[in-house]
Design a protein around this nucleic acid. Sequence first.
DNA 1: TTGAAAGCGGTACCAG
DNA 2: CTGGTACCGCTTTCAA
Lengths: 342, 342
Amino acid sequence: MRRPTQVDVARLAGVSRATVSYVISGRARDDISIAEETRRRVLEVVEQLGYQPNASAQSLRRGHTKTIGLLVPDLHNPHYWQIVRGVEEEARARGYDLLFSSTSLDPERERDCVRALLRRRMDGLILLLTYPTLALAEAEALMRPHSPIVLLGGGAPEVDHVLPGYREGADQLMAHLLDLGHRRIGLILGVATPELGSERLTAYRSALEERGLPVEERLIERCGSALDDGYRAAIRLLQQQPRPTALVVINDLLAIGALRAVADLGLRAPTEVSVASFDDIEIAAYLNPPLTTVWVNAEELGRRAASVLFARLLDPECPPQQVRLPAHLVVRGSTGPASVAQ
Amino acid sequence: MRRPTQVDVARLAGVSRATVSYVISGRARDDISIAEETRRRVLEVVEQLGYQPNASAQSLRRGHTKTIGLLVPDLHNPHYWQIVRGVEEEARARGYDLLFSSTSLDPERERDCVRALLRRRMDGLILLLTYPTLALAEAEALMRPHSPIVLLGGGAPEVDHVLPGYREGADQLMAHLLDLGHRRIGLILGVATPELGSERLTAYRSALEERGLPVEERLIERCGSALDDGYRAAIRLLQQQPRPTALVVINDLLAIGALRAVADLGLRAPTEVSVASFDDIEIAAYLNPPLTTVWVNAEELGRRAASVLFARLLDPECPPQQVRLPAHLVVRGSTGPASVAQ
DNA sequence: TTGAAAGCGGTACCAG
DNA sequence: CTGGTACCGCTTTCAA
């Protein structure tokens, strides 16, 4: 049996299609006036038939889809989920749905996803891009007019974006470690592309320099973005002689791997090795030891991205917004004074 | 500047709309034949204009949307994310997009989400329902013909579903604990609705009964599904006199909370309290101590759900499939012999 | 207060 | 090989 259409409803209710449209869209009350009797009859038939307006047809006619597209790099990292949650919450509150893809850190797929979102005529895009240059050009060029796009995490200056203020947090984190007496601090930089971790790397470098400490390249370990990459990077770092007394990890997920590495090497955190990282995912506070980390409100990141997007949707001409959310250090049990004897 | 339409392309290429449609849809090669020269010209204009077919129009005409709707209860639990990953992977591989909502465990919102998916004319639905009775009836009734719906995790017998075989895993888990000498085993049952954890609860009960052990209701602690609920439930359980020597937790997320509770009470896992749970999320193996848990391949769960759905899309008449994925115990460091002295 | 009808942007059939 | 055109389901203007 076919899904009922507006025509079916109209016929059964003995009215015209326009009338059905009016009562369904709710305009039947203020804008247009419909006899209460007619209204009721239509609603009855709608109920009886289980009629649901076809959203494709509505989009086609109205010129908007009431959907926003969301692109995140990687579904393994809880940090990104938090962002998705924020976006979803805000979007749903405004009656928008979410079309959502993860790019698995693959540049080609990233571009394909953007294309798909464009074909589907999303009203707006929230993009957390790994390779901004490729995909963004595509999106910008094609999504006229006025590209309702917001970037999560910097990139092009002339487009809306919202990003975490990692720099301040990273400065606090480094100061914390340095104050605890740490001098050999390893850095686990597990990012797909250099610019992604640049703020945190810069903070690391300049904190050391400011205190007249050398920046040793071999203390900077680059790796992939999976849990196990963090684990292996930590192993490599901790096997160096002399051993670093602290590990700064680019995000909490990798830090969980690093914590495991510490334990597997028979070391103890924080007495022998301190571990600290970024994001403050929910789990961080529950780990053993609880993780010292730089808090950024990822859910808020998502919500703000959405609200910036809606602002642009409302006023396409408004100047590009660049929101930078605060981040600050949360000291927990995984960091402590540098061990004297190595 | 307006987004270019088929007409714009046709005009600029000096051909008719039909021709544009043919070359774009790729039918230009086998089904219909188009002069190579014409084809090239059209493609050129497409490129030049950045033309992207309007998916709403295509859906309207073709009668399908090439997108599938996915509903998950709660974006806090890594387990669900693994499922999302599986679904996304499989869907993308077949050229489908994902419209995705989380219900936040709210029954009303669950129903609303199903409605939204229906209006959007999803080609199929993958539903992880918390309150199956409410939403499913809606979906079934409305999504004619032949309801391409697959349920993740049991429920109605006459609709496709795929679920984890928790029972076997739970039996193994209980046997493991009992063999280690545990007699007072607490159960943390953090599920929104009773039937969700029923298989695991049944396994818990019958394992005890089989060994002639009493099932004490006060050892069964019901709670919410957030990390902190697990933490608090564990605290309550561990403060009982006599104290349970082992905790079985309904999922890994709550087990992380429980592990924290153990540590906060100054106890040690596994020497003083064993902790075990379900799901084997990626993080489980990296915890301190590594978590003994019942492995279920959640990503595979998602993939299978998708492939069952596609099977039904291909053949609406095929008999309902009920896939039950294996689950088995993975013993790690969080369980050990029951402590003798309490 | 209600109905008729013109599109929205494509697809696919049929004719030439 | 290409063009004309009916139609997918809905919204909205205009006229009655």
